[in-house]
Design a binder for these strands. Sequence first.
RNA 1: GCGAGAGUGGCGGAGUUGGCAGACGCGCUGGAUUUAGGAUCCAGUGGAUAACAUCCAUGCGGGUUCGAGUCCCGCCUCUCGCACCA
Length: 954
Amino acid sequence: MPRYNPAALEPKWQDFWQQNRVFAAPRLPQGPKLYVLDMFPYPSGNGLHVGHPEGYTATDIVCRYNRMRGRSVLHPMGWDAFGLPAEQHAKKTGTHPRTTTEANIDNFRRQLKMLGFSYDWDRELATTDVNYFRWTQFIFLKLFDTWFDPQQQRGRPIAELPIPDDVEGEAAAAIYRDEHRLAYQLEAPVNWCPALGTVLSNEEVVGGLSERGSHPVMRIPLRQWMLRITAYADRLENDLEGLDWSDSIKALQRNWIGRSTGAEVDFFIGTMGTDDGMPLTGEYEGWQTDRTAAGYPRKPGDEVLRIYTTRPDTLFGATYMVIAPEHPFVERLTRAEHADTVRAYCEEAGRKSDLDRTDLAKGKTGVFTGSYAINPVSDEAIPIWVADYVLISYGTGAIMAVPAHDTRDFEFAVEFGLPITAVVDPGEGADIPRDELLAGKVAFIADGTAINSGPYDGLSTPEFKKKIAADLDTKGQGRSAVNYKLRDWLFSRQHFWGEPFPILHELDDRGKPTGVVRALEPDDLPLDLPEDMKFDASHDSPEPPLDSAPDDWLYVTLDGKRYKRETNTMPQWAGSCWYYLRFLDPKNDEVLIDPEVEKAWMPVDLYVGGAEHAVLHLLYARFWHKVLYDYGYVSTAEPFQKLVNQGMILGQMEFTARQWPDGTFYHQAEWTSDITPEGNYVKPGSLPTTTVKVPANKVKKHGENFVWQDHPEAYVDNRSYKMSKSRGNVINPDEVVAEYGADSLRLYEMFMGPLESVKPWSMEGVSGVRGFLDRVWRMIIDARAETIVLNAAVQDIEPSAEQNRMLHKTIKAVTEDLDQMAFNTAIARMMEFTNFFTKEDPRPRSAMEQFVQLLSPFAPHICEELWQALGRDETLTLHPWPEFDESAIKEDTIEIPVQILGKLRSRIRVPADADRAALEKAAREDPRIIELVADKTIVKAIVIPGRMVNFVVK
RNA sequence: GCGAGAGUGGCGGAGUUGGCAGACGCGCUGGAUUUAGGAUCCAGUGGAUAACAUCCAUGCGGGUUCGAGUCCCGCCUCUCGCACCA
């Protein structure tokens, strides 16, 4: 009875591959290399999700295909294993996170092996391995020991940092160095959630509440480690150019980096408080003279408010200024009579979450400080306001407001009755009516011609920008500047389950930190987490859990000084920033990677993963890579040459009808746009509808819409939703494999559609590809025999011309589709092959063999079994890929469509190599065409040999 | 609002440089076989019509062309990302 039985045959071949180490990659590539990488998973307690095998199958197919084509393939897998859930679990149960993590990894590994992926398991690693994070810590030490040289545009050892003359003394020099390191410390606000007893990342905070459990989140300042990724912003942006990534991902990264060019300008505010808040004219004039002589200073003094603008050409239109509520000058600038309102406003702003503050739907808010600054081009005093639409974290945290040419400033000016002066003329034919602009009724933000700008009148916006930047520079009042939306990377987390920082804080005699930090020596690494930690659910301080680590871990005495270890840990991103390097040399105890090995395998030729990592992970990893590149640890400027993002797999299509409380169904005629967030309808005098699921087989099409067969009036909505536990539409790979087999799961996920698209799951679809594999099996195997023997139709004969054509067409199509990662169409071609050959009898063994080779990257288990049944005893995995013969595909005669006025009217059969004249003649002689053109004249014939004929008639 | 992408049968999706729209799979209809089948095999399946003929069909409206799913212009809808970045 040997029916196709994946449950028996798949484990058999998985054992075979493992025992023979078929997929182990050599230390150095033998021949042309291919490094194919999956984004390694976080081993969650829920196990594998059907989204994981999507990308993994795609890369596995690429690897298996390329091995058969003679490439030396490296295909590793590992675990991004630090993460909050294991720590939360520890707090609840007391189980050490390492125990939980290891159990989860075991489950993930079992599931991946069950799917037959051709990983080199000898290279497996986890970010939580002490021998791995030893080198993560090593890289951190490098970052700590590096400053970015803007001239050379590269990272250099901190010892090489030139100390300016105005920095005097070794203590000041040390501070200066600390200010320039790629890893530095900062007081930064964190999202502290008292109910969860943990600090959350911004992504984990939704609307001021924690994503899990919806508990209130407070923003409190805490000492943090930051990484100076902004120093590398230009290189991160420019180097995108040469990468084989989709334009949309590149656009996403460029957008995130958000480079803008403009100017910094200092507005004079004076150092002496005056009764009316106006700077003193005499002091201002003195300042102007000083600046012209001394030039524009690196850091602004107390006498000016420094702003950043992309539109220095609108300086004459700056009618007020705004500083962020967190700006250090707020208190200084606030005059006594405004103190209460300003303080209240800033406190309120501090309480608001980022989300609340950036809610555009709400109008602009702000308060006047009572002080004024002097506009350096017009010498006029303009009021300084505090408003939360200005962000402290961008530019200088202060702006000049030009309401006539900036929509945000315009809104604010209208709200608070501030003057609006137009200084850019849109010209004739612009979208904006000029008279309304001049009257302060609208804002115009595009380029134009300068007006009301003194000596600059008549200049175009770009000319103006260039000239004013030069003039400000001459006067020492401003200079060209570049800014990025990209912020420095907040690199510390208040968690236990992460990499400890290899950093010590010096303590004074009373045990208080002196502010001096000392890095561990690379030879002192790894610094492991303390073994004997107590995990306590009642931990309710925002301080890191490691603060309550045992003293023998926490305190260190070195050279007679007492130190406390850094108790923050690194974020989950850290480990994933360089794992692709360690896979090349995972057991090396001497260096993070052997340069010979690095040179031979890097870069990653194909990197596949979810689009959710399109920005942060890829940006962070590229940043680290560039730092390592600057030190020569890696030989390529970029780590990932080709990147493909797989699309999300949604749940099975759901059909829903909406029912009113009175039992009637929502129908087309009562169309309403009043809909609740859940998609339920609202009408006066009734409670909203409730959602009713409709069985798929009861849905019928009616006109443009779907209706419910049992209630033909009911309007039925059809949609697929993201898989989620709460919706109950999650598909478990274990169950799919148990019912259909791993090969069917793999094949289905590739058959659903293009790898990059979002696609809904369909269990019927899985059953469909299982049917295909059943047919393949029966095409080759005698399903009625007791043992596995070939189908009697499979014989050692030469293929017929037609069979040969089918075979070679299939080889060609599958090969070309694989080169383009068009897996869905490759599978379709193989289905066509099977549909053809199951009708053939006899079936040449050679054709069957080559077909099995084509199918094997997709469905490796069944193919190994068939390969063996066909009499081959070595593994199929390394057997050379079939070549196609173009001459076998060629047909003697082909069918050519004949059109009249572009409409298909007939088909003619002609020799494949028929030339233009022969084609036209054959078409003119076709009886159907003769009939149709009988009473017309052919004015023109368009003939494309091998393609079509089109007659233009009158 | 900005940026990116996508709209093709009942569903997932194919469609090379513009050249036979709907490959392949699911679903559906009919038939064969079977004790039975959610098994297997055969045939059909975009819509309209009595039609093997014709007309209409790739989100909508224009345009270019002998010929447009594909190119151009203008809309609409959906998805994703960013979101007061001065």
